[in-house]
Simulated scan of single mutants.
Amino acid sequence: MNGEVDEESSLVDINETAIFLNLSKAKVRKLIERNILRNNWGQYTNLIRFTKKVSHIEEGSVLNYSDANLEIIRGFPKIRRCLLLEPALKKNFSSVDEVAVEEKMNGYNVRAAQINGDIIAFTRGGLVCPYTTEKVNELIDPTFFEDYPNLILCAEMVGPDNPYVAKTCYDVNSLDFFVFDIREKNSGEPYPVKKRRETLEAYKIKQVNLFGYFKPKDAHKEITKIINEIGSEEREGVVVKDPEMILQPMKYTTSNSNCKDLEFGFKFYNDIGRDYLFSRVIREGFQAAEWNENNQKLKDRCYRVGSSILYPMVNTINSVGKNKKVTEDAQIKVTRLEVLDLFKQHLNRSGIEVHFEEPIPEEDGYIVKMKKLNKSTNDKTESIWLGDYW
C-alpha cells in the first residue's frame, strides 16, 4: 500500500489563517509548502491538520474551515513521564495541596468534537478515523455536544475490538470510550478534574477511574500500591494531575505494561524504533531502584524483562524461517459495511498494510478480523535466513 498522498491545500485561506493563529502569512505559506498543513481525506477536506508542532500549536491540531468562524481543535499535549515517583512529585507538585490520581488506560487516544453539527473522532495525528467516529456516535449521549458545542472530549478507546491496541484486561465487551480530559476549542484550556467528572456524570459518559486525591508528600506510597495492584491485572498505569489542571500532569506505568510493550516491540524488532524499546528498559531500571527491590524481586524483574525481549523475537525468527509471515492480529466490529470500506481507505492512505478477512455477521453488526503486516521485520528476518549480514 502506498503512503499518504499529497493533498491539495487550496482550502487554506492564508490571510485568515495567519490572523487566527497569530502567525505571519509567509509562515503559513511555508507550512503549506512543507505539507505541515494538510487536508483530511474524503468528505473532510475542510479539516486541515498539523502534521508537526508549530510554535504554540500542537501536532495533531485541526483547523475547521466550514463554519462561518474559523476554529481549531487543539492537539492533545504530550504528558511527561515520571521515572522516580517521590522526587518527581516533590519537584513538580509541591505547590498544590493535593494531587488527583487517575487511571492511564491502554488503548488509543482520540478527541471527539462537534464539527458543523456532526460528532467526529480525531486520532492523535489529527486524522478523522471513520471506525472511531462510528463508535463514538454509538457510545456517547449526543445531547452533550448540543449543550457544549465548544468542548472537546479527550478519551481512550479500549477493548478487544480495537484495530490499534487490542486489550482484554478491561471490563469491555467490544470497544468503549473513556474520557480523561475535557478541553475548550481554540484555547485548549482544560476543565478542572472535579468539574469534568461532574459534567460527564450528568450525561452518563464513561471516564477513566479516579483512584483518589492524595497529599503530594504521601502520594508516592499510595501510587506504588495502586501500580502493584493494577499491574497484577495487566493494566497500564496512572496519570497524576493537579486537580485544577494548572500544573502539567505526569504519567507512570506498571512493569507489566513496560514488558508487554517490549514483547510487542521485539516481535517486530525491525519496525519499532530503538528509542521505543530502550526507554522501556530504562523505566524498569528506575522503578526497581526506587522500590529498593530485594535480590529475589530484582531477579524476577530481570527474568520478566529478558523474557519479554527474547521469547517474542525468537518466535519471530523461527516463524519467518518456516516461511510464515509475522503479523499483528486484531479485529473490529462495525454496524455497517460502509464503515469498513471507509476504514480500509483510511489505513491505505496512512500507509498501513492490512489484510482483512471476510466479515462475520452478528445480530448487531459484523466482526472483521485483520492482520497488519510489519514488512521491515519480515523482510529483514527473511534476508538473514538467506545469508545476509546484519
Rank of each mutant, 00 (worst) to 15 (best):
M157K: 06
I272K: 13
D261V: 02
K225M: 02
Q287P: 06
L210T: 07
R29W: 04
S307Y: 09
T316R: 12
D171L: 10
E86Q: 07
D329M: 05
N162G: 00
I140Q: 09
R49L: 03
V354Q: 05
N378D: 12
F268V: 04
I223T: 04
P160E: 07
S279K: 14
V165D: 00
I205W: 10
N64C: 08
L23N: 08
P312T: 09
S257Q: 06
A121Q: 05
F93Y: 14
L127P: 01
I246R: 11
S95F: 11
Q345K: 09
V208T: 15
F278V: 15
D147W: 00
N374G: 11
T224I: 10
K267D: 09
E4F: 12
E146D: 03
K371N: 05
G306Y: 00
P249F: 04
K30H: 13
Y276M: 12
V193A: 01
V62Q: 01
E134W: 15
V5L: 09
G75T: 13
G159E: 00
N318A: 15
E189S: 14
L84C: 12
N69M: 00
S66L: 11
A155R: 07
E184Q: 15
G3E: 09
P359T: 07
R197H: 06
G365L: 08
M245V: 07
K27W: 09
E98D: 04
V136F: 01
Q248E: 14
E338Y: 00
E86P: 02
L337W: 07
I317L: 13
M370N: 02
K369G: 09
L342C: 08
R34Q: 14
E263G: 13
D271L: 01
Y269K: 11
A166R: 02
S376M: 05
P190M: 00
M1G: 14
S95C: 10
D242T: 13
K53W: 09
Y203G: 08
R34I: 10
G265E: 11
E284C: 15
N374E: 00
K267N: 13
D13N: 15
S232I: 05
G125Q: 07
R274F: 14
D379K: 03
E290K: 00
E293Y: 12
Q248S: 14
N270I: 06
Y44R: 02
R197G: 00
E357H: 15
S187R: 09
E16H: 13
D161Y: 09
Y366L: 10
F266R: 04
E338I: 01
N294M: 05
Y213A: 01
R74I: 00
E358W: 11
D242K: 14
P87F: 08
V62D: 04
V179Y: 01
F180E: 11
I246F: 12
A26R: 05
Q43V: 02
D147G: 03
V281C: 06
I36W: 08
N318G: 13
N292G: 15
P160M: 05
D388F: 06
N318W: 11
Y269L: 11
A113C: 01
L298D: 04
D388V: 02
S174G: 03
R80W: 03
K194D: 14
N116H: 03
K369H: 13
